[in-house]
Write a protein that binds this DNA or RNA. Structure first.
Length: 285
DNA sequence: CAAACTACCTGACTGC
DNA sequence: TGCAGTCAGGTAGTTT
């Protein structure tokens, strides 16, 4: 499932394939893939534009175009980008962008594949610098412009479980279920602990853990469990071999050997060590 | 206003 | 073999 490290791996790949290329044709093969369009704009109008750069805010990507507009992309649960020669097909192909041939490239197709259709792309008029549609997404913990003291203060004013805060993309972005569980384990924190009950030092420790697990996953090319996450060349990352708790139910905690437990959380799952991560007396999830 | 809840979606897997 | 049920989960919109 793509979280910040996986999206960053994809961004790096997209930059290499797309920078300087001109989009000559646009084909939408599934309506859900472009379901969010600003009124008065048409996704097809990006044909003719040149991609100057590929940028990221949290789990959102956008292509900065020479027109000053942007194309926003979100991988959702299962989105992938692939670059292939013209004329092929794939059962999960949702959007096909044709890249014009130029002095150093043959005509190429940029594919957006998405089995579960939670992802998609949208045009953002005037959005090259930062699309207004994703202005509500906070900076991530790797961002040099992040106001870390302000984020810590925000977290410590929230009367809600700390895992929910980690997953709130408006506070700090890029964290999903996998890295939330991994960071909480590293910081020896139970996700139900109330954010406004944590010391400043503990919050700092947790955010350091998020940053560390992000960096390690990025170095490993991201986390892949199945075919749902691959880079733009179709290759899997291997950070899943380094996961301490996520998906490790009943296996020993790498720190103390206690069996890892899987518990229900927001209609999904949390994975934790019941000994290293003590539950609060009154649980609020 | 903050927090909680729900719909959206496909395919792999489980149990009968 | 088939079929119903479960699970995976990020985001936006709605409800509390």
């Amino acid at each position: 499932m793509p979280e910040l490290p996986e999206v960053e791996v994809v961004r790096l790949g997209l930059t290499g394939y797309l920078s300087g290329r001109r989009i000559s044709a646009v084909e939408v093969l599934h309506p859900r893939a472009t379901r969010r369009q600003p009124v008065g704009s048409d996704f097809g109008q990006l044909a003719g534009a040149r991609v100057d750069d590929v940028r990221r805010r949290g789990k959102y990507l956008w292509f900065a175009l020479d027109t000053g507009d942007a194309v926003i992309a979100h991988l959702g649960m299962s989105g992938q980008f692939r670059f292939v020669p013209p004329g092929e097909h794939h059962p999960h192909l949702r959007i096909r962008l044709t890249l014009a041939a130029d002095a150093t490239h043959a005509e190429t197709e940029c594919w957006f594949l998405d089995q579960r259709t939670f992802g998609g792309m949208q045009l953002s008029p005037g959005g090259a610098a930062l699309p207004a549609e994703i202005n509500h997404i906070g900076r991530d913990l790797m961002d040099p412009l992040l106001d870390l003291p302000a984020v810590i203060t925000t977290i410590r004013h929230k009367h809600v479980g700390i895992k929910r805060v980690l997953l709130d993309q408006t506070v700090t972005s890029g964290v999903g279920n996998i890295y939330a569980d991994e960071a909480l384990w590293r910081a020896r924190l139970h996700g139900d602990r109330l954010a406004d009950g944590l010391s400043r030092a503990k919050v700092v420790e947790l955010l350091d853990a998020v940053r560390a697990v992000f960096a390690e996953a990025l170095a490993g090319g991201g986390t892949s469990f199945d075919e749902q996450y691959v880079n733009v060349n179709g290759e899997s990352g291997y950070f899943d071999r380094s996961l301490a708790v996520y998906g490790q139910a009943d296996r020993p905690c790498p720190r103390c050997g206690t069996p890892v437990r899987r518990v229900a959380f927001m209609n999904r799952s949390s994975h934790l060590c019941p000994r290293c991560q003590r539950a609060p007396q009154v649980g609020i999830r």
